[in-house]
């Protein structure tokens, strides 16, 4: 096929895909980080935790909550980013025909 590649359009679409993925990953990871923080801090008091950590950190409760939430968000966002990254198989791979049953025999 002799179709001219419109680089501009291609880049625009790629950018849009990228931004949409960033949006979805950051939003969904935000939701789950919030859920994790609620459950975690319902059980553990950050003031108490900061006294028993390996590294001495001096955090008030409010700082502890916020810090904890941001850590959870970092964790869930990293997970989401990696998943989004890995889901994105190289398209050439997807285009290769699937092996038929005869091929297997």
């Amino acid at each position: 096929m002799n179709q001219r590649i419109d680089t501009n359009k291609l880049n625009r679409i790629k950018r849009r895909i990228l931004w949409r993925r960033i949006g979805i990953v950051s939003w969904i990871s935000f939701l789950f980080a919030a859920l994790a923080s609620v459950i975690f801090f319902a059980m553990f008091d950050p003031e108490h935790l900061s006294h028993v950590t390996t590294f001495p950190i001096d955090l008030s409760r409010m700082q502890g909550y916020s810090f904890g939430f941001l850590l959870f968000w970092l964790l869930t966002a990293s997970c989401g980013t990696t998943v989004a990254w890995m889901m994105n198989l190289p398209i050439a791979k997807l285009r290769r025909p699937l092996p038929t049953l005869q091929d297997d025999e």
């Binding site: 679409i13 849009r16 398209i91």
Partner: peptide, 19 residues
């Protein structure tokens, strides 16, 4: 391969139409 890529992306074009 580049063409394949273009086609696959064009398939998605409708999904990712300018908002």
């Amino acid at each position: 391969m580049k063409e394949h890529k273009l086609h696959a992306i064009q398939d998605m074009d409708s999904l990712y139409a300018a908002q």
